[in-house]
């Protein structure tokens, strides 16, 4: 569905320095510099896949997304989406894709969302029957019924996002580009958005590409992740593999039936936290079996669980490593 070969995207920008003097100087001479937003990225994504783009701010995620959507032309390399060259902006291409940006909206601010629906029906030339079916379906899935008649400005952020998603999907696109779709939403609304995107993906076997700051989004939605850092693709694979690679350790959570001495715990691994009833220990992948066996035989346990390190921590480590390299 999506083929990217040796994609490069450079911008030339003028450098702005703070302060009055620098501003005055820049009236006469304006320094330029090249920003290498994307540096030689290649990948391919099959139809129906859900892929998450991970990376710190300014890593090149959104740039890559915009190149895929045809908004930006690649400086070098070849990009094909659904058999089209995105930058040609063919009508057939545009009717197959959609872009949702968490911070930008296409809903008309002072009119009810239903008005934007009607407008998009005309713009995408959606057959009446299909339109009505899609609207009914989206309304049911996202519980839009009470929202469609209210002016957009009166909706809460979460309600607006639901309508924003619906309007972006009216034409049943085959490729969804989601740029920070859950930004600013509360936890339950984030979950709603995730469930919905997944349902849409399964129902229409649409390809989904997501960028998000919330690891939960990526963990819940995307079997495959791509880590982009400083314009380069540094990982492409399943999330558990990524975690294993960055943090090859596990966490053993022990629930105790009675307090134990610290020296009894030390042989198991590194203690992360300890109180009378609960202990968390960090254990290397290889030492896991021995530690668990030892804990089971020597400690007064009520319960024992083995977990991956928290995702946010994995990410922090990942980009800290990247910055050190």
């Amino acid at each position: 569905m999506i083929e990217v070969e040796h994609l490069r995207k450079w911008y030339r920008v003028h450098r702005r320095e703070p302060g009055l003097k620098a501003a005055l100087r820049s009236l006469l001479h304006r320094p330029y510099e090249d920003v290498k937003a994307v540096e030689d990225i290649s990948f391919s994504i099959g139809a129906g896949e859900r892929v998450g783009f991970l990376g710190p701010n300014g890593a090149g995620k959104t740039t890559t997304l915009k190149v895929l959507a045809g908004l930006l032309h690649p400086t070098e390399g070849r990009v094909a989406v659904g058999g089209f060259l995105p930058q040609e902006r063919a009508r057939e291409f545009l009717t197959q894709i959609t872009l949702v940006m968490g911070q930008k909206q296409q809903l008309l601010w002072d009119l009810p969302p239903s008005e934007t629906f009607a407008l998009n029906r005309a713009i995408y030339d959606i057959p009446r029957a299909q339109y009505e079916e899609t609207v009914a379906e989206l309304t049911a899935l996202l519980e839009l019924a009470p929202l469609l008649g209210k002016p957009t400005r009166q909706l809460s952020l979460g309600e607006r996002m639901k309508c924003e998603l619906a309007v972006a999907l009216l034409h049943r696109p085959k490729v969804l580009f989601l740029d920070e779709p859950t930004i600013g939403l509360d936890v339950s609304m984030q979950a709603t958005v995730r469930t919905f995107v997944r349902a849409y993906n399964e129902r229409f076997s649409a390809t989904v590409i997501l960028t998000s700051h919330y690891m939960e989004d990526v963990a819940a939605l995307c079997p495959r992740v791509m880590v982009i850092d400083k314009g380069r693709l540094i990982f492409d694979g399943a999330l558990p593999d990524l975690i294993r690679r960055v943090r090859p350790d596990k966490r053993v959570l022990l629930r105790l039936s009675k307090p134990v001495e610290q020296r009894d715990l030390l042989p198991l691994g590194t203690i992360i936290s300890q109180n009378d009833a609960e202990v968390i220990i960090q254990v290397s992948q290889e030492g896991l079996q021995a530690s668990v066996a030892r804990a089971l035989s020597t400690l007064p346990l009520r319960d024992l669980t083995v977990e991956d390190p928290p995702l946010e921590e994995v990410m922090r480590d990942l980009f800290a490593q990247g910055n050190a390299a």
Partner: peptide
């Protein structure tokens, strides 16, 4: 304000 205005040559 002046600095802001001068940013935009």
């Amino acid at each position: 304000s002046l600095a802001l205005a001068l940013q935009y040559r």
